[in-house]
Amino acid sequence: MGRLWTPNAAAWYLDIESDATVAGSAAGSVDIDPAVVMAGIGYRFQAALDTKRPGTW
Rank of each mutant, 00 (worst) to 15 (best):
M1H: 11
M1C: 12
M1F: 10
G2L: 08
G2T: 14
G2M: 07
G2C: 09
R3S: 12
R3F: 03
L4D: 05
L4G: 01
W5I: 15
W5S: 09
W5F: 15
T6L: 13
T6E: 10
P7D: 06
P7G: 05
P7N: 02
N8Q: 14
N8G: 12
N8I: 08
N8E: 15
A9S: 09
A9Q: 02
A9Y: 10
A9C: 06
A10M: 14
A11T: 10
A11G: 12
A11R: 02
A11Q: 06
W12Q: 11
Y13T: 05
Y13K: 07
Y13P: 01
Y13N: 03
L14H: 02
L14G: 03
D15F: 05
D15R: 06
D15W: 05
I16T: 07
I16S: 09
E17K: 10
E17P: 00
E17C: 00
E17H: 04
S18G: 09
S18D: 11
S18Q: 10
D19F: 02
D19K: 15
A20L: 13
A20H: 01
A20I: 10
T21C: 01
V22P: 00
V22C: 06
A23S: 12
A23K: 14
G24V: 04
G24H: 02
G24D: 03
S25I: 09
S25A: 13
A26F: 09
A26G: 13
A27Y: 06
G28D: 04
G28S: 05
S29C: 01
V30R: 06
V30L: 15
V30M: 10
D31G: 07
D31E: 14
I32W: 15
I32M: 14
I32F: 15
I32K: 05
I32C: 08
D33G: 12
D33Q: 15
D33H: 15
D33W: 06
P34R: 11
P34V: 12
A35D: 08
V36H: 07
V36Y: 11
V37Q: 06
V37C: 04
M38D: 02
M38A: 11
M38V: 09
M38W: 05
A39F: 13
A39C: 03
A39W: 09
A39M: 13
A39I: 13
G40I: 01
G40M: 05
G40A: 10
G40H: 02
I41A: 12
I41F: 06
I41K: 01
G42K: 08
G42T: 01
Y43C: 05
Y43V: 03
Y43D: 00
R44Q: 12
R44F: 01
R44E: 04
F45A: 11
F45Q: 08
A47R: 14
A47G: 04
A47D: 13
A47V: 07
A47Q: 14
A48Q: 07
A48T: 11
A48Y: 09
L49D: 10
D50W: 09
D50Q: 10
D50N: 15
T51V: 15
T51N: 14
K52N: 15
K52D: 13
K52Y: 06
K52F: 04
R53P: 00
R53L: 12
R53Y: 08
P54V: 08
P54H: 06
G55F: 02
G55M: 00
G55E: 05
T56S: 04
T56N: 08
T56I: 02
T56E: 04
W57I: 08
